[in-house]
């Protein structure tokens, strides 16, 4: 892809965005796997309504960062505040005490996550994928939840798929259902981990369109992706991770035209040269 072919940045250029207060505050987070230091002192603040794109080469710790935010991994040091929660811990006499499973689950309900491999529930239909958590966990009224699920399916462009099983859908359709499933919990923040990396090229845009639409409606989003077109179109900030650290953090124009870090230049030259 050539840099000139990318769509022009629109959101920021239009001046339409006013950012709210911080909603995700990552403060000096450390994470190791068996002595492998994966996140090294990572700090990042995301404001309400903001779209932050995270990129960086494979193994740089992007997925781990998202998984730590959503408590799919436990952090070794630092703190993460998200959607009004101190994720994974509570403060007691100035000390951090780990939360129990059920309390972590409650925090996770305010964050939505979309995975590279979709991870839909294969044993239930599309609509049950979407209503399972609201109905079975939040004990919402079933008819109401189903109506909302239909509205969400409409929104992701799949109004006629409610009775299908996941395996009957294409990758792009599955990923849009996964987005609808996450939205059904009415999350305050959405996390996307390479949502289009497992898709055939012709399906990438149908998923990105849904995400752009979501960002335009004010959803706070942290998106790990190598789709630089999406970054230009929807991001307020682009972040580059390298070897467990954030090495660049800039608005898209600056990130692409005027990167300060050598790592960013190298990354961009690689990703834009094919």
């Amino acid at each position: 892809m050539n840099q000139q072919d990318l769509p022009a940045p629109n959101r920021r250029a239009n001046g339409a965005r006013t950012l709210g207060e911080p909603i995700v505050v990552i403060d000096r987070v450390q994470k190791s796997f068996h002595g492998n230091h994966v996140l090294k002192d990572v700090s990042l603040t995301v404001h309400k309504g903001e779209v932050v794109v995270i990129c960086g080469r494979s193994g740089s710790g992007k997925s781990t960062l998202l998984r730590c935010i959503d408590q799919l991994e436990t952090i070794d040091g630092g703190t993460i505040h998200a959607a009004g929660h101190l994720m994974g811990f509570r403060e007691k006499n100035g000390k951090l005490v780990p939360l129990r499973d059920a309390q972590i689950a409650r925090q996770q309900r305010d964050l939505g996550m979309v995975f590279q491999s979709f991870n839909l529930f294969p044993h239930v239909s599309v609509i049950d994928n979407i209503t399972m958590a609201p109905v079975r966990i939040l004990k919402r009224d079933k008819t109401e939840a189903r109506n909302e699920a239909r509205a969400l399916l409409q929104r992701v462009g799949l109004p006629d798929k409610e009775n299908a099983y996941p395996r009957q859908l294409s990758g792009g359709q599955q990923q849009r259902v996964a987005i609808a499933r996450a939205l059904a919990m009415k999350p305050k923040v959405m996390l996307f981990d390479e949502p289009t990396s497992a898709l055939d090229p012709e399906m990438i845009s149908e998923v990105l369109d849904v995400m752009i639409d979501l960002s335009e409606q004010g959803m706070t989003m942290i998106v790990v992706t190598h789709e630089m077109g999406f970054a230009r179109a929807a991001a307020d900030r682009v972040v580059l991770m390298h070897d467990g650290r954030i090495v660049e953090e800039a608005p898209p124009e600056e990130f692409f035209q005027n990167p300060r870090s050598e790592h960013t230049r190298l990354f961009l030259s690689k990703i834009l040269s094919h």
């Binding site: 959503d70 499973d101 996550m113 995975f115 958590a133």
Partner: peptide, 10 residues
């Protein structure tokens, strides 16, 4: 991962 991400307990 998916079931934890929507906030299910064990």
């Amino acid at each position: 991962d998916a079931s934890r991400a929507v906030g299910m307990t064990w």
